[in-house]
Nucleic acid binder design. Structure first.
Lengths: 101, 101
DNA sequence: ACTATTGGTTAGTATTGACTTACCAAATGT
DNA sequence: ACATTTGGTAAGTCAATACTAACCAATAGT
């Protein structure tokens, strides 16, 4: 559930495509696979990685499994970025001032 | 200069380590390599990827090359994330309401 | 019970890319 | 001019992983 896992999960183009299709709303595995140029097992494997990274959650509905975004995981990642960028930019400002002196 | 490139650049642990060391301030290639368990050429290659992704910039200083964060690129990425997450969460809210109906 | 549908899992393959070693180029000092 | 320092580049290797095909498990309908 670390931010590293989320980074690595979203770095792969196909996996990012799966994730971004879920932005439009929850979907079954088969429906996701139809809109992508890879096989259903490939989509299933990507969903597992996304789930383990805390980016999506799964719900059973009969024989289907409906995947949707994990809003907590996403918010967590976003919060991390906010802090990260703030720190980075602040440190850079400090270094600029130091070299000006 | 797409956000995809930035994602992929930061997904690799060693490369992320290089980037995060630059948060503390600008540095030469050799200095970066000393603090990492990989060779100097490896660091050089990672810096090239980070530079091509628009995450760091380089400045020559005699025989040295000093790398520092590209604040514009970082800010751009952060802005993208902000929009991205907002859209994602909003779409999810919509889907919740739709399924409640 | 049998069939159909959905999707997770396994095994094997092929590609990608991170890394090292060796080499080369450019700037500085003596 | 020559040696030194710094770092980018090229070639080759090896490990990681995205993908497919085949198989299996579970649920729903008849």
């Amino acid at each position: 559930m670390t931010y590293e896992r989320k980074f690595e999960a979203l770095a792969v183009p196909t996996r990012r495509a799966v994730f971004e299709r879920l932005i439009a709303g929850p979907s079954s595995v088969g429906a996701l696979a139809e809109g992508l140029p890879v096989s259903r097992p490939a989509v299933s494997q990507h969903l597992k990685v996304l789930k383990d990274a805390g980016l999506v959650v799964e719900r059973r509905e009969g024989v289907r499994r409906i995947y949707r975004l994990d809003t907590d995981g996403i918010r967590e990642m976003r919060n991390y970025f906010d802090r990260f960028w703030d720190d980075a930019l602040e440190a850079y400002q400090r270094s600029l001032e130091a070299s000006d002196a």
